[in-house]
Amino acid sequence: DNLVIALHSYEPSHDGDLGFEKGEQLRILEQSGEWWKAQSLTTGQEGFIPFNFVAKA
């Protein structure tokens, strides 16, 4: 599955970004460039995340 774990917390800075906490698990929905579309397994919310803040779970 496309699961990743957050290496750092991220505060959203643009509409459509997904904020998350360090250690949170996310499911990657789309990989494109440096911003990936993801869904939080904690909150169920979707949005874009910086790819370098996460690692394969």
Rank of each mutant, 00 (worst) to 15 (best):
L29P: 00
G19P: 10
F51C: 14
D15V: 13
Q25K: 12
A6L: 04
L29V: 08
A55F: 09
D17I: 08
E34I: 14
I49E: 01
L26A: 00
V4A: 08
S13Y: 11
F53W: 08
A6P: 00
G19T: 06
H14N: 13
T42E: 11
D15F: 12
L3M: 10
G19K: 11
E46A: 09
F51M: 13
L26P: 00
N52D: 12
L3C: 07
Q45S: 08
G19D: 02
V54H: 02
L3D: 04
A55Q: 12
I28A: 00
G16W: 15
L7A: 05
A38G: 05
G16S: 09
H8D: 08
E34S: 12
H8Y: 15
H14R: 15
I5R: 04
F53C: 12
D1Y: 12
L7P: 05
K37C: 12
H14A: 11
F48L: 11
I28Q: 00
I5C: 09
E46M: 15
D1S: 10
E46F: 13
Q25T: 15
I49P: 01
G44E: 05
E24L: 01
G23Y: 05
G16Y: 09
S13K: 15
F51S: 14
E46N: 07
I28S: 00
Q45E: 13
L7R: 04
W36P: 04
H14F: 11
G23V: 00
F51V: 08
V54P: 02
N52C: 13
L26Y: 02
E46T: 15
A55M: 12
S13D: 09
Q45L: 13
G23F: 05
K37Q: 06
E46L: 11
Q31M: 14
D17W: 14
T43A: 01
V4Y: 15
A55L: 09
W35C: 11
I5V: 10
E34R: 13
D1F: 12
S40N: 11
F51L: 08
K22Q: 10
L41K: 00
T42M: 11
F20V: 06
G19S: 08
E11V: 14
F48I: 08
E34C: 15
A57I: 15
G47T: 01
E34T: 13
W35A: 06
G33V: 03
V4I: 05
E11N: 12
E24R: 00
A38F: 03
F53R: 05
L18W: 04
